[in-house]
Design a protein around this nucleic acid. Sequence first.
DNA 1: ATGAAAGCGCTAACAC
DNA 2: GTGTTAGCGCTTTCAT
Lengths: 338, 338
Amino acid sequence: MKNIYEIAKMAGVSKSTVSRVLNNNGYVSQEVRDKVNKVVEETGYTPSVVARSLSRQETNIIGVVIPEMANHFFAEVLSGISEVCDQMGWSMICCDTGNDVVKEDRALRVLAQQRVRGLILTPAAERNLKERRVLETLFDDLEVPIVLLDRHLNKSRWGGVFYENKKSGYLATKELIQAGSETVGIITGDLKLQIARERYQGFLMAMEEAGKPIDEAYVFVGDFSVETSYKLTKKMIAAGNMPDSIITSNNLTSLGFLKAMREEKKRIGRDIAVIGIDSIDILDILDYSFSCVARDTNEMGKTAMRLLQELTDKKAVDNVVYTVPCVLQLKGSERRSP
Amino acid sequence: MKNIYEIAKMAGVSKSTVSRVLNNNGYVSQEVRDKVNKVVEETGYTPSVVARSLSRQETNIIGVVIPEMANHFFAEVLSGISEVCDQMGWSMICCDTGNDVVKEDRALRVLAQQRVRGLILTPAAERNLKERRVLETLFDDLEVPIVLLDRHLNKSRWGGVFYENKKSGYLATKELIQAGSETVGIITGDLKLQIARERYQGFLMAMEEAGKPIDEAYVFVGDFSVETSYKLTKKMIAAGNMPDSIITSNNLTSLGFLKAMREEKKRIGRDIAVIGIDSIDILDILDYSFSCVARDTNEMGKTAMRLLQELTDKKAVDNVVYTVPCVLQLKGSERRSP
DNA sequence: ATGAAAGCGCTAACAC
DNA sequence: GTGTTAGCGCTTTCAT
């Protein structure tokens, strides 16, 4: 591929002029402009963004670090980020950490080296103070703004786009009780994550409000994965002691729960009622009765990207927080009708 | 962020030495190595990949261009690509074209400017000769190898990772006939895409082999989207003329079909039999009887990335083609039992 | 084993 | 309006 100097030579002008034409800034006569464009056209010349970035001392790439691309929640988020990113003419480097902090650290370091302009991060886990300081320093030194997405990072000063976690747990529980449940159980997420704790707290709050005691046997500590939720549900069924209803704390937890129920020939609405946190698109398509507390996932991604843009433009301060609302979607599974 | 020169100064050595330590090449005494590493550690210095890329005249970024991230098929593929990419220590810029050729062109141009080291592409559509030439020239000039994924680009000389499309259509159709269907219909994908035509041809072949005539009324030309498939199925049901069974040509087509069936209170296995091309994970979890012809999606992504690596290493020639096998998964929906 | 210096392809301040 | 020139932060060749 030719470089800018060769294009300049061919057009009989200087590099600066070619640069001006390419970036459409500075004064350059129409005549010269046409001449340069013609050469660019003919040669199929494409300027190097890496040289430009070095010279300008900034890139137009953002980093996106998420725990699992194949999780539909994150796929939707990514799609939203990508759309806004594209509109801005920026590019996005995606990293999938598989919920592994080691991979996450590596990803963050790579993105720092890439000198990304901004970062959208869903942390695999919360970190101790020291680890967090290292990360903070790394990106602070580079003046890279960071937007957290969905998950918090303990005591970090970064803002982000989050969810009404506590409220979602609260609403789901309250609804189950109102629909007639005497006993309500929950399969939680990884309680090391703030969002899992919040959802659980919402559950506790609604229970207390209704004057229901918490039965430890009905609190299943999971980790937001299909597998664990599946195992816990199996165990619950095997124990022969099921609550009237249960909260599944995220989309994968719901799936694991449904899988185990199917296998054990248990039926939602007959053997147990359920409300999930997060919707599962396909269940709606199938008209499957699965009640949930939902949110606009794609919009979460878009909002995160817009916030990041404001931060890079210095039009927002660091610790801005957007909270997307939860919406109850009742489809019948909140009720048990034996 | 400090640069290499400042680190050198602080360590009392030259830039070259720091570079050698950082890249772990060339001779440098253990003593000096330690000294440099200490300074790097203390300052939290992170070398700039953009400067390195300019100097080395190559990046470690690959471009991935796909039609829709939120489609579970592509999310899985992305996940596979990402994993191998990460293992290699490379980064990946993702672009979602939304099946739009204009966006695709823009994405490709951006990736060329980014001087990506390689490209994995699922084209939004086939192109005319001229458009294709422009693309080819662009990346040829930059010596960027390209791996096609899932979808072909007409008459291009690029290799890639594809699927047994014709066979999948053939197997599905044959199975439906064997299971007792007198009449078989199909909702095709966008026939401008070779993979859609191939799947359709497989259908035709099996029909011919079985001596069944093709009833035009049972051939529904779709476009691999939920929406179109939904509308076509609605129309089919409204017309009151359904085949014994039907092929749905990809995962989204299956979903649109299932949605319309539900809405119209039609039941798979009673009113019509069906085999879909591509599996839908969640249906398995729900133990939903949905037969399909499946493939290892995640592996397709990994294979594509490995092929790309071989191409960048010049260990493979351009037009290598991997074809991933299709596997019949019968769950009962292939049979109609009124 | 280490340093000096040229160069990667571009941008932008300055000169004319 | 256009050209000249000095970087941007690295790598790498060539001396020493």
